[in-house]
């Protein structure tokens, strides 16, 4: 393993231990309730970035994959009484398949046309769920949380830890892709697709891989929503919020490096929780909008880009 790789895994282990310690120390359930939401966006932003950041294909349909994940979990609960782990795996599988199918149909489209097609996928899927009685249709469905296992103190704490695990897994997958030959190929696709193809890069295949992995991670992030919220209806499961935030967070954090979406989601997600808890949930939309404009205009490479610029300047000033 490389030194950077070792550093990453030590960091990942530290994050998980910290989270575990937090569940033992902190008594107020609210922290974990809010933390779950922030971490869900870490997974979503990281997943979005695999296709949107690395390959440059802007997916406006994150909500389709999250919703697919949530409803896959609902089906798993209703039909199979499956435990959470199985729900997540099934959701990842279904959303991954959805990613593959969407990719097959839309990835030949470029730029804005691809983005519009992904919006359509979200609408089609929501309409399908609205008309599916088994999962509650448009009125929604009540999911009973399993009886508290006592593990990690409470069910909310357990869900929080599951999301920590998913976040670490998502970051690890994104990082692995980024530094592999796939990452280099995806960047070539983003920079110039025809030149990439002429350099021997199987562009369609790489985009399909990215779309499938990205979709699977989004679905996995959506699965625990079923037991987290206990009541699910299509309008919230397919909320446009997911699509917008999953795109805004990597832009704020920086799309070139796996840490960009993680930072963007932590910053954005936390700020959102703070603003909606202390001021108002309406104002929190305004905060998102202003931040997005500030970053797009002032720091198009995001926080990671600012950091690199600063580091380069310091290195330049330090040498004679």
């Amino acid at each position: 393993m490389t030194r950077a790789g070792a550093k990453f895994w030590v960091g990942a282990a530290a994050v998980m231990l910290l989270a575990l310690a937090a569940t033992a120390i902190l008594k107020n359930e609210y922290w974990f309730y809010a933390g779950f939401v922030v971490l869900q966006f870490v997974v979503l932003a990281t997943a979005w970035n695999i296709l949107g950041g690395y390959a440059g294909y802007v997916n406006f349909g994150t909500s389709a994959f999250v919703g697919a994940g949530t409803y896959a979990a609902i089906v798993a609960i209703k039909a199979l009484a499956a435990p959470l782990g199985v729900q997540i795996l099934l959701a990842a599988g279904i959303a991954g398949l959805l990613g593959f199918a969407t990719g097959l149909l839309t990835l030949r489209l470029r730029g804005i046309f691809f983005s519009i097609a992904t919006v359509a996928v979200a609408i089609v899927l929501e309409t399908f769920i609205v008309n599916w009685r088994f999962v509650g249709g448009s009125t929604g469905i009540q999911i009973l949380r399993p009886v508290d296992t006592g593990l990690f103190g409470s069910y909310t704490k357990m869900l929080f830890l599951v999301m920590v695990g998913l976040s670490v897994a998502a970051a690890a997958i994104a990082r692995t892709l980024e530094i592999s030959w796939i990452g280099r190929g995806l960047r070539a696709v983003r920079d110039n697709e025809e030149a990439a193809e002429s350099c021997g890069v199987p562009t369609l295949r790489l985009k399909l891989i990215a779309c499938t992995i990205s979709g699977a991670l989004m679905g996995a992030a959506g699965a625990p929503m079923a037991v987290y919220q206990s009541y699910i209806e299509p309008a919230s499961a397919f909320s446009l919020n997911y699509s917008i935030l999953a795109l805004a967070m990597p832009i704020v954090g920086g799309t070139a490096h796996w840490s960009g979406p993680v930072l963007g989601a932590l910053l954005f997600g936390t700020l959102q929780q703070v603003v909606s808890a202390t001021i108002s949930s309406e104002l929190n939309r305004l905060v998102i909008g202003v931040m997005l404009i500030v970053f797009v205009v002032g720091a198009p490479a995001g926080i990671v880009g600012l950091w690199r610029k600063w580091a380069a300047k310091r290195a330049g000033a330090g040498s004679p």
């Binding site: 280099r184 960047r187 070539a188 920079d191 110039n192 990439a196 021997g200 890069v201 070139a256």
Partner: peptide
């Protein structure tokens, strides 16, 4: 049609 976000060396690495 260079890969603009990459270094010259990386362009050849593709």
């Amino acid at each position: 049609r260079p890969f603009r976000s990459m270094s010259v060396l990386e362009n050849l690495m593709v």
